[in-house]
Design a protein around this nucleic acid. Structure first.
Lengths: 158, 158
DNA sequence: TTGATATCATTTGCATACGAATGAATTTGC
DNA sequence: GCAAATTCATTCGTATGCAAATGATATCAA
């Protein structure tokens, strides 16, 4: 039998009657997916406040290329958790801004190689210190110990 | 030494993962934003595997309407962390599927009231048990104690 | 009362994000 | 060595997500 939506008044009534408060109720704000979405939103906003001319995915692409050097578009996508369709758009926009350059793989003609330009390298070197600040600000509501715990558990989930 | 500032969190996470602390390097996979994005992606994938015909934002809108009843579009957006432009698209699609209905506020002519239809109510009642499963599966990599800690810290960040 | 502000909703533009379909090139299996 | 399966990249369609501009309405304040 379908239970009708519960209002706060219902809960008050049950409290008055000495029942458990809303054992069966569903509260969106307690769901991990909803909080995860909000935490991600907050991080993106903090990112944008420090790095206005690049999005987090664009930054991720540059940072990974800086780390590992030239690689194929698909491989880069795998490393920064983007599917083929998404990474193409990101790389297209970075290319249009002269931060990466593309070339064909000599042997495997399917592959499209991506690499930083000199300008892209300068950009990522300039931005990495800001990224550390962004990480700190994102974690600022937590103590150092809590932040370490949180990152450990988050990594297990991701 | 012109060594760039390195947050303690970076090193702690790498120690947890058994990696050597690289004093100078910048590692994308240690940044909270990147892991947050991946964890969110994983959750969305789990959600889609259980609820194929609704997205997480659509589900959030229905669940919140089920919880609080009729409200204005903007107010609903505030409650489920969506800006006005985003919530409009979500509500438009739910309306097109007959899950919500819209009406004008009698007094304040600016407001657009949103409410569940009977079909929308049936849908959300049917889906809420699946949502609990989704939450469980998302948190499955953690022990019960870890999950509680994680949710507490995540809520502080969001 | 009226002029300035604020709020609600819409629209446009841009940037992820992903499923599905497609075509080209490579690798596998027999 | 060749057909089948796989991989790489692209394209299309759909759905968030947000900034900025706009128009309509409501509220505030002098």
């Amino acid at each position: 039998m379908g239970r009708p939506a519960m209002s706060g008044e219902d809960n008050l009534l049950r409290l008055v009657e000495g029942e458990e408060p809303d054992e069966n109720g569903y509260h969106l704000q307690d769901q991990v997916g909803f909080i995860l979405r909000k935490a991600h939103q907050r991080h993106v906003a903090i990112f944008a406040s420090h790095i206005a001319d690049l999005t987090p995915p664009q930054f991720a692409a540059l940072a990974k290329l800086y780390d590992i050097g030239e690689t194929s578009q698909n491989q880069l996508g795998a490393l920064i958790a983007m599917d083929a369709a998404t990474v193409k758009g990101v790389i297209d926009r970075l290319k249009a801004r002269g931060l990466v350059e593309l070339s064909k793989h000599e042997v495997d003609k399917r592959r499209l190689l991506v690499n930083l330009t000199a300008e892209g390298r300068e950009a990522i070197e300039r931005l990495i210190p800001l990224a550390r600040t962004i990480t700190e600000e994102t974690l600022a509501p937590l103590t150092a110990k809590e932040a370490a715990t949180f990152l450990r558990l988050l990594a297990k989930l991701a």
